[in-house]
Design a protein around this nucleic acid. Structure first.
Lengths: 134, 134
DNA sequence: CTGTATCCACTCAGATACTG
DNA sequence: CAGTATCTGAGTGGATACAG
């Protein structure tokens, strides 16, 4: 994702109604959430809040995710300050993940979207079917 | 994206807290919005609602988008019943796009996310910088 | 247990050129 | 004007193997 530095340069880019300039905050957040697992991870962690969840347990809760994507997604979430990581220096190590206050504050907005989704999936699927028939 | 039919099959997949099964509506909606342009297009069209916007005008309003991505994104949005397309049979043809009631109803939830984004971008950027330094 | 490294397939997104 | 077709590079995500 990583905000593309203005694409072509075809136009000098000073259009009035340009939502693309300057680097739209919404874009950045949406990009962050646009991955395949980000939003699910936040929901799972929010569901466990304020408790911590270990790596293996997360893997179980978000079934279908690969080890790679789990650690990759967690790292990106941690980088953005949405997820906290705590390592217990035992052998073998136990790593606990939890939502930061910032991460937790995102769950509300995400939930609004979730509710919209649940209310309208059928409509969308209907529209899709109708479109594909034509 | 297209919901991946349960990945590996490693586990019989009947975990209790499994958000992945059955095909989560949230996932589908988030997937729909996860593209680079989808949410921006909805915002632009919502800003013009209930008016219609022509193809070329959209291209101007969402600067940086290529012709290909614009038509591609509009088609997927139309397919899902979020966007309406009206062709005026003149020569050359004039095509008008607008949000359907369904599409319009999505603008609210999206706006919640936008507001969250605007309130917290700085925090996120700070966290990111701090993480990258370590 | 909790990752990282590597390889590979697939999709996304942009550039360019062409059509009704 | 409003697209479609094609080519290409970059990014995403999965499988597998290996490491602290």
């Amino acid at each position: 994702m990583t905000t593309p530095a203005r694409a072509t340069g075809a136009r000098p880019d000073d259009s009035p109604g340009d939502l693309f300039n300057p680097a739209c905050p919404t874009r950045q957040v949406l990009d962050r959430l646009s991955g395949k697992w980000e939003s699910m991870l936040i929901k799972v962690l929010a569901g466990a809040a304020p408790g911590e969840v270990r790596f293996a347990e997360l893997r179980r809760r978000v079934s279908g995710i690969s080890q790679k994507m789990l650690s990759q997604t967690l790292r990106s979430l941690e980088r953005d300050g949405l997820v906290a990581r705590r390592v217990e220096p035992t052998v073998p190590p136990a790593v606990h993940y939890s939502l930061t206050p910032l991460g937790l504050s995102l769950d509300g907005p995400l939930d609004v979207l979730r509710q919209w989704a649940e209310r309208h999936v059928v409509e969308i699927e209907t529209a899709r079917t109708r479109y594909d028939e034509a």
